[in-house]
């Protein structure tokens, strides 16, 4: 993140391991068979196994899914919003990739 923290905390005396936060995981849930996994949120956990356990408790308390992926947020590579225009430009000027580019007579069926 490029943002400054709002208010740096004066931390009290404690061992090093207590200061270190658990890593952030992103959670993806497959709502039902036949659907993609969809990002539903994030959580902190010490390791992959507890991340999975926590994801079940936090994001599927009401049968919201049949399958869960948990991924460490730091392992995700994301496109940057700053380079949004150049990154997606190659798709922008290729209107012939869309079916609506082609005009077909109205009386031709099933097109």
């Amino acid at each position: 993140m490029s943002h400054e923290h709002e208010a740096p905390i004066q931390r009290t005396e404690s061992p090093d391991s207590a200061k270190k936060e658990w890593p952030l995981y992103e959670v993806f849930v497959r709502g039902k068979r036949g659907l993609n996994h969809v990002h539903v949120g994030s959580l902190h956990a010490a390791d992959d196994a507890t991340a999975m356990q926590n994801a079940r408790d936090v994001y599927t308390r009401r049968n919201e899914g049949v399958s869960i992926w948990v991924v460490k947020a730091e392992d995700i590579t994301a496109s940057s919003p700053d380079e949004k225009d150049p990154l997606f430009a190659p798709a922008g000027d290729k209107v012939y990739r869309h079916p609506t580019f082609y005009s077909i007579p109205d009386d031709v069926p099933h097109m």
Partner: peptide, 22 residues
């Protein structure tokens, strides 16, 4: 659970979970 969803949302703004609790 609601608290956790909202803490996650807050963290996307650059504040850590421990900072929020403190």
């Amino acid at each position: 659970g609601h608290g956790l969803y909202l803490y996650s949302a807050t963290e996307t703004l650059g504040v850590s979970r421990d900072q929020l609790t403190e």
